[in-house]
């Protein structure tokens, strides 16, 4: 039970990171980007590629399984994922945004997600891969509860990012412009905000968070080209649970989904685990279609 709770919080924090990016892009660009989860996969593999190039020039920082090279790889992966997101926006979404039908964008994002997944499969192959082959021993922290240091790192990174993003949205001009754009794009432009620049930053932030989520996923589980495919439903469930555009809601939504998945295993066969977010999604859409914390970019209302 305790172990299931801990596991749930950890997978929930990875879902939360992915969901923050998705909720920001959904709130500001006003469409459901089904390719967002592929940015998570892309980020994870870009870090792997960076490590392959740089090599592990420094040993791991005990007790973690990795060292400075992976941390550098995260930063580069975030940049490369941002570039991919900006390229996709420029080549695919921007021309499609001129169409009046928003569904066109959603289907476009479906196509992109398949394309990105297949490119990853083509380059990196379908087999599971790891950043480090070193075995990590889980440390017993309480009776019946064992946690790996990497998992604690994951949790810490998530907390730091959520706090930093909150301050960014509340205290900076760009954060304010993003919140203004999310509520009323036309009024934002009338106020002198260059909405295209804000949209670009939204992609950079969303894609960077996706990349971090991907690396943390690869670090604590494994790298497979289907990471995004498995995450897309939990991500949307977390976003909708928290209310589209609500950063704080996405974090809570992610944790709820992560916990529900891991606690469900205690009662139903683990093969049904993937159905849990779907059930939560349906329940939320039925009971409270605007999300539990129906809101706008920036969090608590």
């Amino acid at each position: 039970m305790l172990q299931a709770l801990a596991d749930g919080i950890l997978s929930g924090s990875i879902i939360a990171l992915g969901a923050i990016g998705l909720t920001l892009t959904m709130g500001i660009l006003r469409f459901a980007n089904f390719a967002h989860a592929e940015l998570v996969t892309w980020g994870a593999y870009m870090a792997l590629a960076v490590l392959a190039v740089t090599g592990t020039f420094m040993g791991p920082i005990a007790p973690l399984s990795f060292g400075i090279p992976l941390i550098l790889a995260i930063v580069v992966a975030a940049a490369l994922t941002s570039l991919l997101a900006l390229a996709i926006d420029w080549l695919v979404y921007r021309p499609l945004r001129r169409q009046t039908n928003h569904l066109t964008l959603v289907f476009g994002s479906f196509g992109i997600s398949l394309l990105v997944r297949m490119v990853i499969l083509l380059i990196f192959g379908g087999a599971a891969q790891y950043y480090s082959t070193a075995l990590q021993i889980a440390i017993p922290v309480a009776p019946g509860l064992r946690i790996m240091p990497d998992q604690l790192f994951t949790l810490a990174v998530t907390v730091v990012i959520v706090v930093a993003l909150h301050f960014f949205l509340q205290k900076t001009r760009l954060g304010l412009a993003m919140r203004a754009l999310a509520e009323n794009p036309e009024l934002a432009r009338v106020n002198g905000i260059d909405t295209r620049a804000v949209v670009r930053w939204t992609w950079v932030i969303g894609a960077s968070l996706a990349a971090v989520a991907g690396v943390l996923y690869g670090l604590t589980i494994q790298l497979r080209p289907e990471i995004g495919f498995h995450l897309i439903l939990p991500l949307f469930a977390a976003v909708i649970l928290g209310g589209v555009g609500n950063v704080f809601g996405a974090v809570i939504g992610g944790l709820v989904i992560g916990l529900a998945e891991s606690l469900a295993v205690l009662v139903v066969p683990s093969g049904y685990k993937m159905a849990v977010p779907f059930l939560i999604l349906l329940a939320v859409l039925y009971l409270r279609p605007t999300g539990i914390f129906a809101g706008t970019v920036g969090g608590v209302k």
């Binding site: 304010l176 919140r179 509520e183």
Partner: peptide
């Protein structure tokens, strides 16, 4: 209409 940001 909608001439202020109500969420800000």
């Amino acid at each position: 209409t909608a001439n202020v940001f109500t969420t800000l």
